[in-house]
Design a protein around this nucleic acid. Structure first.
Lengths: 197, 197, 197, 197
DNA sequence: CATGAATGAGAGTTCATTCAT
DNA sequence: GATGAATGAACTCTCATTCAT
């Protein structure tokens, strides 16, 4: 009936995911032992393997969870407009907001979304899902002549690179997150790069 | 007494570095055992530790070697001009050339220059050395009013992000390395982003 | 309240025994986890331990059940005669029949009746019970001069060895089970070995 | 130069094999941990895996070693004669001698030559090698009319069964190993079974 | 009776590093 | 300089068993 002090349902699985996030980010995947994750989660070693078939599955699950959280966050309350610059800015600012509010999850992305610890399949799917809005937006912008007519693959890679840089910057300097000079400058750089001229 | 067919002095040390480069890039640092490096180098396990006090020292040494090679490559035959755009483009293209010619060394940079396996000290020093030209160039450009008056730290991070993206793109698509459309577009994106307007 | 489609009382206990039989034979005792037995029996892990105090008890119980089944099978409809050869042949053929009809139970015997997984006590008792008829028969045959006057312990071990060989042969070649040439030859070999000459 | 008190070359590998033999026989394969083998061999855990890639490889190697030893032992000083009975008896007695002199190796055979811990390939090859003499002998005997005209597969299985029984008997009762009554009776049982009548 | 999350000791195996030769 | 057998701590993962529901 009542809920004990130190056990709510699904608590342990979530605790493992939470602790794994912090340890993986702080120490790296290989340098983090399953034993240390279990210990920090106040759980037996076997419990970790009861919920996740392997360390690999654990990090993949973590990746998918965070991806979904992020996708949900930036897709909420989207600005509805035909002005592509405004639309892109809206997404950009939402992504920065999320990164500032969830620094560990953001660092996790930065560290692992390009690394080999995550299944290539999972990784690419995540990229596609997350960049989906952006890809659509850029394509549409090119068709309408608002965005520079550069080969799309190069353009996307460039955009992605600028995105990672911005995120890294604000994650490393969270105190600048509310500084509208920096926030605006951040988007302006990208927009200058890709807008038609 | 005599020197065998496949062993001249310093040969073994270099063989170890070469094999380590490939294995670290293909499998990651932790997933590559010193035994496998020794085996691929056709050398005894003890020999590796004869030349490098530890696995950590080995990867740091590798990092420094590659850094110097790269720095040397892009500093050769610098274009002498007061036109900042031309000067920046010269560096940019030289960096892309090097990346295309040395894909494994480039991938090594991409993987490890942000990761924790390399001493932070070594890492930052390398960054500074390599970006040194660029930092100077950008500062100078801002002073002269050719480059946008955005906070320098944000600007550098952005520039770095675009650089990594370009390198990644051409390393992944080496066949486009000689395509001048892509080469020019690559630099144009950065320049549009950062030039004064 | 009501009884579900696939669960009548004692069903689950029997399902566990059945599945354990197959898994133990196919994979061995240690290589079969209680979890896998439970899963194959469509039962929770706890349920297994509700019916059997431990894995050891489970295999012992299985052993005893099969032993009783076998003993019952060969003791039914015994041929009543004073001719020892006929009497022995009757038992021999009944044992082969049972083995052919119950290959997994037979293989279980072959694998575990000499192995250390079963309590020595349980094992020996089973041996005695099963060979009981035979021991009596052979003793009686020796007294009456129909069976060779070889030390009894050696004779029994030899008889047992031939029995195991026959069973193994017909379990491995069930299609020869109805071949009377093989069936007769099988008994003839033993009888030639042990009859007085 | 000199040989230290507790280390002669190849010592450790052999020590591991010797200790593994005893532990596997006494406790079974799965119940024997690699740690316990290493400890009994006075060797570090890693040393075991330096010499044998896995526990499985270790037991297979052990099996092959013992097989060769046995094959060598019974093939030495074979009795040269055309009398099949004498020839078979010679082999039979040599096998019993070896079993008595090497009880642990013999028990290892008894326990593992039919079990699943050894690769099926290794197992069958061993059977063929060891029974090779016997198979040839029995075939030849059948052709010459000295051995009963029973299907060969059944005959061999029966012979094998009697062989295992004899070995088991003398391994369990080594004090009867020099008793010529038992020794002769042992062979007589087989011969009676299989000779032409 | 039945469940299945939780346990933690212990398994097999890996690997950076040492050192006698 | 070069070798590779030896080391043992640390790793990931398994599993028989328990117990609150």
């Amino acid at each position: 009936m009542k809920q004990g002090v130190n056990s709510t349902p699904k608590d342990k699985k979530q605790a493992i995911l939470d602790c794994a996030l912090h340890l993986f980010v702080d120490q790296g995947f290989h340098a983090t032992s399953t034993a240390s994750i279990a210990k920090k989660s106040a759980v037996a070693t076997g419990t970790l393997f009861h919920h996740f078939p392997s360390k690999q599955h654990l990090i993949n699950q973590l990746f998918l969870n965070i991806k979904q959280e992020f996708a949900y966050a930036i897709s909420q309350n989207r600005l509805m407009t035909n002005n592509i610059e405004h639309s892109a800015n809206d997404l950009w600012q939402k992504a920065i907001d999320w990164a500032i509010e969830n620094p560990y999850k953001q660092k996790f992305f930065l560290q692992f979304s390009l690394s080999a610890e995550i299944d290539q399949h999972t990784r690419q799917q995540a990229m596609n899902d997350i960049l989906h809005f952006v890809v659509d937006l850029i394509k549409q912008g090119q068709q309408q002549g608002f965005i520079v007519d550069t080969p799309l693959d190069l353009l996307l890679e460039n955009f992605h690179g600028q995105y990672l840089a911005a995120i890294r910057f604000f994650t490393d300097n969270p105190e600048l997150g509310q500084n509208s000079l920096y926030r605006q400058a951040s988007f302006k750089l990208v927009w200058q790069a890709i807008r038609a001229n």
